[in-house]
């Protein structure tokens, strides 16, 4: 996650963050690098973070949109030419999933066609399934789909959100910005899911045609990877 050590092709990916409790998630992601710009958010905060993949380096340019409701009408400005979007909901608040669904619909309709969208349920730490291991999440998630007991704050079941994400072809994760569960996984999955062809600033000497092709193959594999993962985790069957 630090500086690229080898001269791997590096490209920047514009990512827009939408939904509730999104800021904390991206802060967790970016904080390793301390690139956060400290100004209070007016419109949107701009952050960057690099993500190293085996074959390339992706530099995320993250627009963290302001949380206040009325700023929603500014959102089109930010997602207009974004290649990826992170739509976050709070898995302790069912209404936030409804809003997230709205954003997904909005992105699918208005954003650039190939946009990679990840649906993320945040605040996993507030559920009673705080094992921290990403593997366990799916199983816990299934448990949570059953009637809750013992003070679990979860209000959105994994199954519900995951089904929706599958229907819409979204990447899906449940994370905790607080303890870091699954956070980098989200961004890595997005980075993998971005098709090489849509990368704009492929700079660096290594970005030759063959390389790009290889990366594309790779990304194709990876594209399905996270989703397979997610389904494996989610189903626990």
């Amino acid at each position: 996650m630090a500086e690229a050590t080898a001269p791997k092709p590096s490209s920047s990916v514009k990512l827009v963050l939408l939904g509730e409790a999104a800021s904390s998630l991206v802060l967790r992601f970016v904080n390793n690098d301390f690139q956060e710009n400290k100004e209070p958010t007016i419109g949107a905060a701009f952050l960057t973070q690099k993500c190293n993949l085996p074959t390339r380096t992706i530099k995320f340019e993250i627009w963290d949109t302001a949380g206040q409701e009325r700023f929603a009408s500014l959102a089109p400005m930010y997602y207009r030419n974004a290649q990826s979007a992170l739509v976050v909901y709070d898995l302790t608040k069912p209404t936030s999933l409804i809003k997230a669904k709205h954003w997904v619909a909005e992105l699918q309709r208005q954003a650039s066609p190939g946009i990679v969208i990840a649906l993320v349920g945040n605040k996993l730490d507030l559920t009673n399934e705080t094992s921290g291991s990403s593997n366990a999440i799916g199983e816990d998630g299934d448990e949570a789909a059953e009637p809750e007991d013992d003070g679990d704050a979860r209000k959105v079941s994994t199954a519900e959100a995951k089904t929706y994400a599958e229907e819409e072809g979204l990447l899906f994760f449940e994370t905790s910005a607080k303890n870091g569960t699954n956070v980098t996984e989200v961004f890595t999955a997005i980075a993998n899911a971005i098709p090489e062809t849509s990368l704009k600033g492929a700079r660096g000497p290594g970005a030759t045609q063959s390389n790009a092709n290889r990366a594309e193959d790779q990304s194709r594999v990876n594209l399905t990877g996270p989703r397979d993962n997610a389904s494996k985790e989610g189903c626990a069957c």
Partner: peptide
Amino acid sequence: VQLSVVSLPWFLSLYIN
């Protein structure tokens, strides 16, 4: 580069920020 995402805070907060 979308200029307005850069300039929006200038106007919205009168350059104060």
